[in-house]
Design a binder for these strands. Structure first.
Length: 500
RNA sequence: GCGCCUUUAGCUCAAUCGGUAGAGCAUCGGACUUUUAAUCCGUUGGUUCUGGGUUCGAGUCCCAGAGGGCGCACCA
C-alpha cells in the first residue's frame, strides 16, 4: 500500500476493500488463490439462447457458468443481491439469494465490492421487468479490485487518465472497447483479404543499420554486445522489395513504424502500416485491389457503403473517383503544370497564397497540394500521376519523364494510402540516392542515408512491381469515426508524470 | 516550437464581483426478498496540479513551472 495517500479519501476507500478482502479470507475464500473457473457461457450467448424467454417465466433446468467483472450491485433487504456481471461479450444480471446459495456463501457475497471479478453459475430466468438474469446457485470471488472504480454512470471522462490507464477506460467505457474490437476486426479482415489473394505475410526487422524507404527522422537505439548503433525502421519498404527480388513475388507486412516527429491528432511516434508489394502488377491493378479492399472493409465493419465521419457522410460506393494530379491542381487551384514543375513557379504560387517559401521544390508542391486539393477530397478519391520530384522511389511513367506511376487515395480530407510502380532500375535508384545525399548534406535530416545494399538487390533484378502503403491507424479512425489517432491506439505515448 | 483552453473529493461536475469549498455517484451505517442510473434515511471524504506574488482575505487575480486537450507550425 502506498503510504503517501494515508488520510485521504482514496486511502479510506482502499482500506475498506482491504478489510473486505481480509474478511473474505477469514470466511474461507481467498480470491487471489483461485486458479481457474469453468466458464461455459458468455453474456451474449445467454442473450441469444434465451431471447424468447417470457418475463417471469419458469426457470429452465440448464445450468450456465459465467465469469466477469461486477460493475453494479443492488442489495435488496438482508437476503438478496442483484448485480451486473460484465464479460467480454456484454452484461448479464445476477440474482443472488441467501436461501439459494446458503447463508455462508451469502456472507461472502456481502464482502464483494464493485469491480471484483466473479464466477457464477446457475439457471436463467427473466424478471418480471424483463431482464434476463442468472439465478446464482454458486459463485466464487476470482479476483478482488483493491481500488475504487470511476462513477458508474459517467464512466471515466478525463482524457489524460483514459490514455494513461487505458485498462480503466476499457473497464468503464463500452464504446472504447468497441473501438478496439473494431480495430482488431479491421486488421484481421485486411490480413485475410491479402492472404486470400496469394500474398505472404512477412516480418522484417524493426532495428536497422539504415532506416530508409521514407523521409523521416528515426529513433536511435544501441546494441550493447555488438556496440552498434541502430535505427528503428521508418518504413518496411526496402526490405519487402528485397523479398520480391528474392522471388516471394507477393508480400505484405502489417508492422509498427517509428518516426521521431511531432505528436498531434493524426501522428503518433509509433504507428501501424500495411505495406504490400505485388510483382508484375501495374499501378492500375493496385488501384483496383485498393478499391476492393476498402469497400470490403467498410462493408464488413459497417454493413453499409456510407459512413459518418464527424459531421460528414462518406460514401464508399464503387467506383471511387479518379483524378490526375495536375488536373486536380488545374480544377481546384487554377494552377498549370508548367508553373508547378518550375521551382520558382511553385514558390511564386506559395507566395500568392500568402504562405512562406518552402525549403525545397517538393515541399512547396506538397504544401500547395494540402491547401488546394485535400480540402476537396471527402469521398474516397484516387489522385494519380504524381510528379517525380516528390516520388523518389517510384518508376517514371512511360512517355512522360516528369510523372511517375503513382497514386494516393484520400478520404475525409486525409491520405489513406499511397501506391506506385516501384523503381527497379538500379542505376536510376543509385542516382536518386546520390541526389538525396546532397539534400542530406544541406542539412535536411529527414532525408535518409542511402542504402547501397538495396541498390545491389536491384542489380540482381526486381521484377516490375506495384507497392502500396496503408496507414492502419488512420483507416481505423475513419471507420470508427474518431478524430484523434490516440483514440484508436491502445497506449498512445504520454509524457511521464512528474516524480513526486 | 508558438497560441488558446484546461487541471477542485475515488469518479462526474458546481462554487456569482476576491469573502466559511458544495452536489450527485461511490464508501460506511440503517430500511427494503424481482432490482436495474434501484429507492428512502443518515455518514465519511479536500495539498482546489506545483511553487512564488498581490491582498485583511485567493479555487478565483498576477508570475513561473508541470500534465493534458485543441489549433498552428512541422510531418510525402
Amino acid at each position: 500500500m502506498e503510504p503517501s495517500d494515508e488520510g485521504s479519501a482514496e486511502h479510506a476507500l482502499k482500506a475498506q476493500r482491504r478489510t473486505n478482502l481480509a474478511t473474505l479470507r477469514d470466511l474461507g475464500s481467498d480470491p487471489f488463490a483461485q486458479t481457474r473457473y469453468p466458464v461455459d457461457a458468455h453474456a451474449s450467448d445467454i442473450a441469444t439462447q434465451y431471447a424468447s424467454l417470457e418475463p417471469d417465466a419458469e426457470t429452465p433446468t440448464a445450468h450456465h457458468a459465467l465469469a466477469g467483472r461486477l460493475l453494479a450491485l443492488r442489495k435488496q433487504g438482508k437476503k438478496v443481491f442483484f448485480a451486473d456481471l460484465w464479460d467480454r461479450s456484454g452484461k448479464l444480471q445476477l440474482y443472488v439469494r441467501a436461501d439459494v446459495v446458503g447463508d455462508d456463501a451469502f456472507a461472502q457475497f456481502d464482502q464483494v465490492d464493485l469491480g471484483d471479478i466473479i464466477g457464477a453459475s446457475g439457471t436463467i430466468f427473466r424478471t418480471k421487468s424483463g431482464e434476463l438474469t442468472l439465478r446464482v446457485n454458486s459463485f466464487a470471488v476470482l479476483s478482488k479490485a483493491l481500488v475504487p472504480l470511476p462513477d458508474k454512470h459517467h464512466g471515466l471522462q478525463d482524457v489524460e487518465k483514459r490514455y494513461r490507464q487505458r485498462y480503466v477506460d476499457l473497464i468503464m467505457n463500452e464504446h472504447v472497447r468497441t473501438i478496439f474490437l473494431t480495430r482488431s476486426k479491421i486488421v484481421s479482415e485486411m490480413r485475410r483479404f491479402c492472404d486470400d489473394r496469394g500474398f505472404i505475410e512477412c516480418e522484417t526487422p524493426t532495428m536497422l543499420h539504415v532506416a530508409g524507404g521514407a523521409a523521416a527522422r528515426p529513433f536511435r537505439t544501441h546494441h550493447n554486445a555488438l556496440d552498434l548503433n541502430l535505427d528503428l525502421r521508418i518504413a518496411t519498404e526496402l526490405n519487402l522489395k528485397r523479398l520480391v527480388v528474392g522471388g516471394l513475388e507477393r508480400v505484405y507486412e502489417i508492422g509498427r513504424i517509428f518516426r521521431n516527429e511531432g505528436i498531434d491528432t493524426t501522428h503518433n511516434p509509433e504507428f501501424t502500416m500495411l505495406e504490400l508489394y505485388a510483382a508484375y502488377w501495374s499501378v492500375d491493378e493496385m488501384m483496383a485491389f485498393n478499391e476492393e479492399l476498402y469497400a470490403h472493409l467498410v462493408a464488413r465493419v459497417h454493413g453499409t457503403e456510407t459512413i459518418a465521419f464527424g459531421d460528414r457522410e462518406i460514401s464508399f460506393a464503387r467506383p471511387f473517383r479518379r483524378v490526375a494530379y495536375f488536373e486536380a491542381m488545374k480544377e481546384w487551384g487554377g494552377l498549370d503544370r508548367a508553373t508547378l514543375l518550375d521551382p520558382a513557379g511553385a514558390q511564386r504560387v506559395l507566395r500568392d497564397m500568402g504562405l512562406p517559401p518552402s525549403q525545397t521544390h517538393g515541399q512547396a508542391l506538397d504544401k500547395i497540394f494540402e491547401r488546394v486539393i485535400e480540402p476537396n477530397l471527402v469521398n474516397p478519391t484516387f489522385v494519380y500521376d504524381y510528379p517525380v520530384l516528390i516520388s523518389p522511389l517510384a518508376k517514371r511513367k512511360a512517355g512522360d519523364p516528369d510523372i511517375v506511376d503513382r497514386y494516393e487515395l484520400f478520404a475525409a480530407n486525409f491520405e489513406l494510402s499511397n501506391a506506385f510502380t516501384e523503381l527497379n532500375d538500379p542505376d536510376d535508384q543509385r542516382a536518386r540516392f546520390e541526389a538525396q545525399m546532397v539534400e542530406r548534406k544541406k542539412g535536411d535530416d529527414e532525408v535518409p542515408p542511402p542504402d547501397w545494399d538495396f541498390v545491389t538487390a536491384l542489380e540482381y533484378g526486381l521484377p516490375p512491381t506495384a507497392g502500396i502503403g496503408i496507414g492502419v491507424d488512420r483507416l481505423v479512425m475513419l471507420l470508427t469515426n474518431n478524430q484523434s489517432i490516440r483514440e484508436v491506439i491502445l497506449f498512445p505515448l504520454q509524457r511521464p508524470v512528474a516524480a513526486s
